[in-house]
Design a protein around this nucleic acid. Structure first.
Lengths: 188, 188
DNA sequence: CAGATAGGTCAGCACCATTGACGTAATTTT
DNA sequence: AAAATTACGTCAATGGTGCTGACCTATCTG
């Protein structure tokens, strides 16, 4: 191996802009300078752990995250049409097809023609699919509840408000939140 | 196309468990039943919008999310070694290599042998890389700040506490948070 | 000098997403 | 009743991002 790009080590220690090379930046972007990076990085690390909980379970079944998402929404809203599911997931039907095919073939989900419109293939979980969906959500809820352990009902409001605002750009998301009552009405 | 799996439509409307077919589940998983799905779904939709902001910019450069992550952490912590970066990203060096190679070849990042240990290839952003990192973060900060528009300093605490708890499973994450002071000491 | 460490690379594979094109069945429109 | 539209399925090709395994160089350490 030749490592040509290293044979003449950039002389940046003496000259920050050697001829023909771009300037090297040595100062870090500070956590709270022009931009505040704290929430960016918290979201990155938090979401990775969040999905990791489910990923390790999915591996046992030979599934990936895409399977999880399909399974989740079919369980949350049985009778969903393909079009509705695509609208929620924001992927193409070609992307969905492979994943859905596997879930159907392995008997986690089944399709039933719509009553009114028989072109539709409405999606329902099987008992097997329901069980897996619950297993996956249980793992994620465990982490969430642990993270919220010391959170009061009062403190839950700003958290929910923040996440809802982050999430509510698309109509499909807003519709889902309203239909499924994803909000923090203080419950007592 | 034959659609064999549809030729004999499951008679589940009459019999929930026809011979040889799995039981079909028709009731939805309620938002707050045995499990509370609200935070799960808020995180899913929120993170998708959050990454989408950067994705559309990256597309212009022919880059993906992996490039973004590398660029981000190299900008946040210039002089990072490969090993340190791998520890933060939790990927293999083979996964990193393609992405890093492109960022180096296209002059967004450069490598400089370590002063003390010359085996190390310490990573620094170029001015071009710094500019892109800022452009990407600006888009994400814009969404975050909009979502936090009505949030008081007081309300910021529970949000930060929640995300930090969600994110802090791994030592590498905890170290990063401490080193970069990712926390909400009320500032005034 | 021997071994460990930091890093690079090749080959092959899996997963998940894309676009484009084409097909079928059912519903709606004319 | 014919035509157009809709709902869905599928084939083919491609790209991005991850993985494992194997093997390489350069450097540091004992």
């Amino acid at each position: 191996m030749v490592l040509t790009y290293l044979m003449e080590p950039p002389a940046v220690r003496d000259d920050p802009r050697p001829v023909g090379a771009a300037a090297v930046v040595r100062d870090p972007l500070p956590t709270q300078g022009l931009l505040d990076f704290r929430v960016i990085e918290l979201l990155f690390f938090a979401y990775r752990e969040f999905t990791g909980d489910a990923d390790s379970i999915l591996e046992k079944y030979g599934f990936g995250r895409a399977h999880h998402r399909v399974l989740h929404f079919v369980n949350r809203d049985p009778g969903l049409t393909i079009a509705e599911l695509l609208d929620i997931l924001q992927i193409t039907k070609q992307s969905l097809s492979r994943v859905l095919r596997q879930l159907i073939d392995e008997d986690f989900i089944c399709q039933i023609p719509g009553d009114e419109d028989r072109r539709q293939r409405r999606l329902y979980p099987t008992e097997k699919g329901r069980a897996l969906a619950i297993e996956l959500s249980r793992a994620q809820v465990r982490r969430i509840e642990a993270a919220l352990a010391k959170t009061t009902d009062e403190d839950m409001r700003p958290i929910a408000t923040f996440l809802t605002a982050m999430a509510s750009d698309r109509q499909a998301a807003r519709d889902w939140f309203e239909r499924k009552d994803i909000s923090w009405k203080d419950r007592e």
